[in-house]
């Protein structure tokens, strides 16, 4: 593999109509989408967790004389309507947003895999029942479902993660079910059965292994969905409750004061959400492209 890359690098002569374009391509061609996305995400995580160590300011402290202050030396990203430091809140908000999204993705992933594998490996009638249930669930818009849950469950970080995760699993479940259905007709699964393999062995060794890369890719997309979902829910006032900071909540407080136009209250949380989702999508797309390339080899 490394040989191939080295060969293609030396084989492509830097000639042509647009030598400069080629140089650009050479510089950015090596910067892979998955790598860039991963780095961007790491940067955001570092901002959220390492940032507070370098910029130790209380995100809840109220500075009564600096209400809605524009970015300045003392408050690099300004203050909100209660005079709280936006940079500190953005860091703390990143912690809650990313952590809850991550846990929610993990819950969605595990629930989806389990459900999908049971449907895919179980008898046909069970598959029918489980898949029709899934269809019914998918027919309800996610946001409506979330609002419904938010209305009946006391809101907290843990309950938010569980709620989001339980809304997220159907996509993964369908993926797992289809992969399992396809794999169990494969000759290598029939061979394993002939050697005396049970359903659990087949699920673990042949099916999970076959779909692991696809699952990883989908987990990154799921993470992006979770960030957006959590931020959207909080923006609607149903997610993380004030005074706790979160990206969606910050955006909400900015939007409510839109008449005064505190641009720093909208731009910075918005940028953070945008970058986090961009990072996860780049990571997912890059991994997917790499996966497909591998399949062709």
């Amino acid at each position: 593999m490394t040989d191939d890359r080295a060969a293609s690098r030396t084989a492509a002569p830097a000639r042509g109509l647009f030598p400069r374009a080629r140089r650009w391509q050479a510089a950015f061609g090596t910067l892979r989408a998955d790598l860039a996305g991963g780095l961007l995400f790491l940067a955001l995580a570092a901002f959220s967790w390492i940032g507070p160590l370098l910029y130790p300011h209380d995100p809840l402290a109220i500075h009564a004389h600096h209400i809605l202050a524009a970015p300045q030396a003392r408050f690099p990203l300004g203050t909100d309507d209660l005079g709280r430091n936006v940079l500190a809140r953005l860091m703390r908000g990143g912690q809650t947003t990313l952590a809850i999204s991550f846990v929610a993705s993990a819950i969605g992933l595990i629930a989806g895999l389990a459900y999908g594998l049971v449907a895919g490996l179980g008898p046909g009638w069970l598959d029918q029942i489980l898949m029709r249930l899934l269809d019914a669930l998918l027919a309800i818009p996610t946001l409506i479902l979330l609002i419904f849950f938010a209305a009946i469950v006391p809101l907290g970080e843990a309950s938010l993660a569980v709620m989001l995760g339980l809304v997220a699993w159907p996509g993964i479940a369908r993926l797992a079910r289809n992969e399992a259905r396809a794999a169990r007709e494969r000759d290598y699964v029939r061979a394993a059965r002939q050697f005396g393999a049970g359903r659990l062995y087949v699920a673990r060794v042949h099916i999970l292994r076959a779909m692991l890369p696809l699952v990883i890719v989908n987990a990154t997309f799921l993470m992006a969905d979770m960030i957006l979902g959590l931020s959207g829910l909080t923006f609607l006032g149903l997610g993380i409750e004030p005074p706790h900071a979160s990206w969606g909540g910050l955006l909400n407080s900015g939007a409510q004061l839109a008449v005064i136009d505190p641009w720093w209250l909208i731009a910075f949380p918005g940028l953070a959400i945008f970058l986090a989702i961009l990072a996860m999508n780049m990571l997912g797309q890059g991994l997917l492209a790499r996966l497909e390339g591998e399949g062709q080899a």
């Binding site: 494969r186 000759d187 290598y188 029939r190 060794v205 042949h206 292994r209 076959a210």
Partner: peptide, 8 residues
């Protein structure tokens, strides 16, 4: 070929 898991 079909009878072997491509990832093994």
């Amino acid at each position: 070929y079909e009878a072997m898991n491509p990832r093994m």
